[in-house]
Computed example of a mutant assay.
Amino acid sequence: MTELHFTKGQGTGNDFVLFADPDATVDLTPERIRAIADRRFGVGGDGVIRAVRSESLAEGRALVAEDPAAVWFMDYHNADGSVAEMCGNGVRVFARYLTESGLVDLAPGETLTVGSRKGLVDIQRTTNGFQADLGRWRLGIEGSGADDVLVRAKNLDGARPGVGIDVGNPHVVVAVATEDELADLELTTWRCSTRP
């Protein structure tokens, strides 16, 4: 069994398991990710973020060729083991992890460029945290073949139309009728399906 030294971090309510693997030596299988992210039998988290030197991953080497400042790559995996391009909350937590771990020095007002599967991401340290420039958003969910989706969630009366928005990773925006309806939703058990 491999020993893994990790940190837990959260950004705007999303929590992540973070660890440094500069040379990409840890084998991150989907099964291992699910085990780490499991809230009952693992550490628990919305995802797992590995800090890797960009030069250690094929995706990262291409980004360093584009911008040598992208020394670090955010290797992000969802809790279900799937690979993700980007997470806005996760990249801010990643920047905090890099600075707190002493892997980078970043003073307030300075910008850090990191690699991700979305591409290069610029993160600025502010006086009270970090802000990330995720680039331009676009309507629709890339690869879905549809611009809108139907969303079903526990305690939501029937399926609702949603609008797909991609900010490097897909999101769906759904209108609800009241604040009470929103408060009653169980958002951990939602399902989206694209409409042709």
Rank of each mutant, 00 (worst) to 15 (best):
G145T: 13
L187S: 13
D23P: 02
G135K: 08
S101H: 11
L98H: 04
G88R: 08
M1R: 12
G90Y: 12
S193R: 10
H77P: 00
A183T: 15
V52D: 01
E85L: 11
G164C: 05
L112D: 00
F6V: 03
A69Q: 14
R53Y: 06
F16S: 00
W137H: 04
G11S: 12
G102S: 11
V121C: 06
E85N: 15
T111N: 09
G13D: 11
V163Y: 07
R160D: 00
M86N: 11
A107G: 03
K8R: 13
D105G: 00
T2P: 14
T127M: 12
A183Q: 13
R191Q: 15
F94C: 02
G47M: 02
L182I: 07
V174H: 07
G44L: 10
V176R: 06
T12W: 01
R191M: 05
D105V: 07
V43Q: 12
R32T: 07
C192P: 00
E3T: 14
T111Y: 02
N169T: 13
R96A: 05
R39S: 13
S56F: 04
V167N: 11
R50V: 10
P30W: 11
A70I: 07
E85V: 12
T25H: 06
A153L: 15
D184T: 05
G129L: 06
R117E: 09
E3S: 09
R40A: 08
I33A: 04
E110W: 13
Y97F: 15
V71E: 15
P30Q: 14
G44S: 02
L134H: 09
A79Y: 09
L150M: 11
G90P: 10
A62L: 07
L112E: 07
P161S: 13
T2N: 12
T12E: 03
D148L: 01
R32I: 08
T111R: 13
R152T: 15
W72S: 03
R152K: 02
E85P: 13
G42L: 11
W137Q: 08
L187Y: 12
S144T: 14
V151L: 08
F16L: 01
F94A: 06
A153R: 10
N169Q: 09
D122W: 04
L28H: 09
D46C: 14
V91I: 15
D46L: 14
S82G: 14
I36A: 05
D147T: 12
S144A: 15
G115P: 00
R92E: 03
R40L: 03
F73N: 02
A95I: 05
A35Y: 00
D133M: 01
V104E: 10
A146D: 11
T25C: 03
I33E: 05
T111K: 10
W190L: 12
A175T: 15
A69R: 15
V172S: 05
R117L: 11
A24W: 01
L98S: 04
G42W: 15
